[in-house]
């Protein structure tokens, strides 16, 4: 059947794809059967026909702009030490579905660059409520919260399994570079520029300080003005 039809096709007898009233009784059905037979046999011959990606074994490369749920960025090795978050509550207030819960610390702890900062004692995100809108990321002044790309999040418990705590949310800056390289490079450049500016200002202030020192009262300890 296939052979006959392909010969006929090459001779231009059948297989013209214009819409036309079928001339021979049952011709349309035979054409359809030939087409499905071609697909059936072709799928065994040509791998190109089988376009389905066999997901757990095969994966398509993820596009860079993909985002799913937020995570907390930390610098350095220790996640508790390097957490950029200073628990300013902006993201908690801005979050439209109110899925973020933060408790601020009473003491201060040096951050990755050694500057004493407040830190969140509790930082929870309920990802069963989160709608992946990225507003927390937009509003964060410290580049502390970013969007993750992990989507294989099935869990056995729909309550505690989907309420992520600080430890679960903390991911390294290297991870951020891996999932969003362009964006992370821009953020790092911005942070470095900011730090350089602060350092320059501090240096200028330190140089100015000895000159004005006799006239002013003793300075407050460094870091407490923030």
């Amino acid at each position: 059947m296939l052979v006959i039809l392909s010969v006929a096709k090459n001779l231009g007898i059948v297989w013209n794809f214009e819409v036309e009233v079928e001339t021979v009784f049952g011709e349309g059905i035979l054409k359809g059967l030939a087409e499905t037979a071609r697909n059936f046999l072709g799928s065994y011959v040509s791998k190109n026909r089988l376009t389905t990606v066999q997901y757990p074994e095969e994966r398509l490369p993820q596009i860079e702009a993909y985002r799913n749920f937020p995570f907390l960025v930390y610098d350095g090795e220790d996640w508790q030490q390097g957490l950029r978050c200073v628990s300013c509550f902006i993201c908690e207030k801005e979050c439209p579905p109110k899925c973020i819960f933060i408790e601020k610390s009473t003491d201060k702890k040096p951050d990755a660059v050694g500057k004493p900062q407040f830190y969140p004692t509790v930082f929870n995100i309920d990802i069963s409520v989160c709608m992946s809108c990225q507003i927390c990321v937009e509003v964060c002044p410290f580049d502390a919260i970013k969007m993750d790309t992990d989507f294989e999040l099935s869990t056995g418990n729909r309550f505690s399994g989907l309420l992520w705590d600080k430890k679960h949310l903390a991911k390294s800056n290297e991870h951020y570079h891996k999932i969003h390289p362009t964006e992370a490079a821009a953020v790092d450049a911005q942070l470095a520029a900011d730090r350089a500016k602060t350092a320059a200002k501090a240096k200028a202030a330190a140089e100015a300080k000895p000159a004005a020192a006799p006239a002013t009262p003793p300075p407050v300890p460094a870091g407490s003005e923030k």
Binding site: T36, N39, S43, L50, Q54
Partner: peptide, 10 residues
């Protein structure tokens, strides 16, 4: 399986 192959699936 046959219907899948007809539709170019596995």
């Amino acid at each position: 399986k046959g219907l899948g192959r007809i539709q170019n699936r596995y």
